[in-house]
Simulated scan of single mutants.
Amino acid sequence: MKPRVYVTRKLPDDVIERLAQTCHVRMWESEEEAVPRDVFIEELKAADGALTMLTEQIDRSVLEAAPNLRVISQMAVGYNNIDLATATARKVAVVNTPGVLTETTADLTFALLMAVARRIPEAERFVKEGKWKTWAPLLLTGADVHGATLGILGLGRIGEAVAKRARGFDMTVHYYSRTRKPDVEEKLGVQYRSFDEVIATSDFLCVLMPYTKETYQLIGREAFAKMKPSCRLINTGRGEIVDEEALYDALVQGEIAGAGLDVFTEEPISTDHPLLQLPQVVALPHIGSASVATRMTMAHMAVDHLVAALQGKAPKAQLNPEVLTS
């Protein structure tokens, strides 16, 4: 008998057809709306495996309602929506899709940096709203990217890829990371600095750290007070790392010059959120990995990991390897 799996968002037919070759598949049939929690819990009661998104909160109550669940395959790199400790205790293997979105997310990070620096969304609205009447010497002037200092918080794969892009703009790159990377320093010419030094010297500050208890609201009032008034913050890491109330105050009070945000503490962010009222904020709907090629690769990888784990094999991306190795 084929194992039963539940897919929490509608995926392309070819992805589901591959999964259906080895599994009995049930799927939430919406591309845009997340599966309601009560439906998700009900579906998991009979499921051996689940292919999930970041939008599902898989906490203790969900896991305890799924007695047959053996595998959670998440179509994302992040997994802070999953109670990993409880999953491990219940011998549920948890896998994700790392590595495939590095370059795509780095592209988006740099695009967001450019958009904030040169006020591109503001300029587009200016034209479309019929406000462009003549050329003016200081009309919508922004900040130069070439030759500026870029600070990177978290020099993982994406941070390294962003640093590579910065070389093409002759930027000076400083970074802070839990682990110093001498090989990357030599290869890319980036310079390790303390956290305080990075935030104090950056013209552009990219937040690419993972979300942990230690990084929760790490970028708060104390950090903003140390930044240049000309600094522009770019967050494509995790929304919880930035204190959004402190960010709003820093922007209004002129402690920093702008922000480009692809992630937020609560997603989707409310349309009446104070940050969205500021013209110097460029806000995106968490599209860091949103290229067709990358999302398709992620979907197929999630299927591969799900099937392998259901067959008792240990995917390289398993987040709790003790489950399958035991």
Rank of each mutant, 00 (worst) to 15 (best):
Y6A: 02
V7T: 05
T8S: 14
L11W: 06
D14Y: 07
R18H: 11
H24E: 15
H24Y: 14
H24L: 15
R26C: 11
W28C: 08
E29A: 14
V35D: 06
V39H: 13
I41C: 12
E42Y: 08
M53I: 05
L54M: 13
E56A: 02
R60A: 15
N68T: 12
L69R: 09
R70F: 09
S73M: 10
Q74W: 08
Q74F: 08
A76S: 15
N80D: 15
D83W: 05
D83Q: 10
T88M: 10
R90W: 05
K91P: 03
K91T: 12
A93R: 10
A93S: 13
T97E: 01
G99D: 12
T105V: 14
A111S: 13
L113Q: 02
R119G: 04
V127G: 08
L138A: 14
G147M: 06
A148R: 07
L150D: 07
G151N: 08
G154R: 00
G156C: 07
I158G: 00
A166T: 08
F169Q: 05
V173N: 04
R178W: 12
R180P: 04
V184M: 10
L188M: 08
Q191V: 15
Q191T: 15
Q191H: 14
R193Q: 14
R193M: 13
T201L: 13
S202C: 05
F204G: 06
F204D: 05
L205P: 09
K213C: 05
T215E: 06
I219T: 02
G220L: 02
R221K: 13
S230G: 03
L233I: 07
N235Q: 09
G237H: 03
G239K: 09
E244D: 10
L247H: 04
L247C: 02
A250Q: 01
V252R: 04
E255Q: 15
A257F: 06
L261F: 08
D262N: 04
D272G: 10
L275S: 07
L276D: 14
V282N: 02
L284S: 13
P285A: 06
S289L: 03
A299V: 03
H300E: 03
H305E: 12
L310Y: 02
G312W: 02
T325Y: 13
